[in-house]
Design a binder for these strands. Sequence first.
DNA 1: GCCCAGGTGAAGC
DNA 2: GCTTCACATGGG
Length: 317
Amino acid sequence: MSTGTTKTFFAVKNYDLALTLNSGQVFRWTPDDSGGWVSVVGRHWVRLQAQPSSIAAEVAHPVRDWGWLAEYLQVGVDLDEVLSTFPADRPMRAAVAACYGLRLLRQDPWECLASFILSSNNQITRIRQLIGVLCKCYGEPVQVPDGYPPSYAFPPAETIASLTEHELRRCKLGFRAAYLLRAARAVTRGELDLDQIGSCSYETARAKLLTLPGVGPKIADCVLLFAYGFQSAFPIDVWVERALRTFYFHGSRPPLAQLRTFAREHFGPFAGYAQQYLYHYVRTRAPERPRAEAGQCEQGKPDQTVCIAHAPRRRRT
DNA sequence: GCCCAGGTGAAGC
DNA sequence: GCTTCACATGGG
């Protein structure tokens, strides 16, 4: 079926679209050959393109109310206000300088939960692949403009819940297949109400997510941050753990509980945002970076450098 | 071939 | 409470 597009513009400043869509918080955006980004948001095929002071957005059908996309992109957030709450220590300043314009999106809870269940012990490239296969196999096709390949919505919990573990394993989900299936069934049966979680306190919401098999502290915090906007959620994955150890604990290995306490106290009301800056900074922008002294990140002293990205793993005994 | 990945749950201390 | 291990799979 041949179809054109409907277009709008969101006025933004300090919004680095490519950085945001590539920062490991979302897994379904792909660049097209004319400088844009294409994905499916909800049941909408969407193409975005960064402009000097706006984001151009196209969908494949007439749209009157663009609120859903403004909400997804969080175009109303004043980034400088967020950044002004970050601690002014050396690693955070470096992360902000390197990743300025990085934003947090507001994703659909089920898609976000399912995606991060699949992220467990997996690489971003593969997470993208798994989700792509899952959507192609079990997602509803959505309307796409001429010249673009077929696109699919993310399969709803009901659809996943109706499958077997064997079918999911055929999508190469591995051990995550059982987790995804049980999460989908819990949501479908109403054992976990994803809509209700948004109106809970952070602690209550987190506790509810943690009842799902395959959802631990890290994945719960990702969902709380990326889908519900709990700004104090601070997901600690291997990269963030490495960053915290190196920058704030002299390379020592404190227990995770201690890292969480430190993060909650150190990074302020937008700790989750700060986490995303640290994460993306250590993964992509800082093969070598200054070593920060815990609690004293004054400028002026010559730095030792330490390579986080290639830091040797602690030897097993 | 090897190490690793936006982890988690279970078992062992 | 903390540490170690298995879990599937393929990218680099």
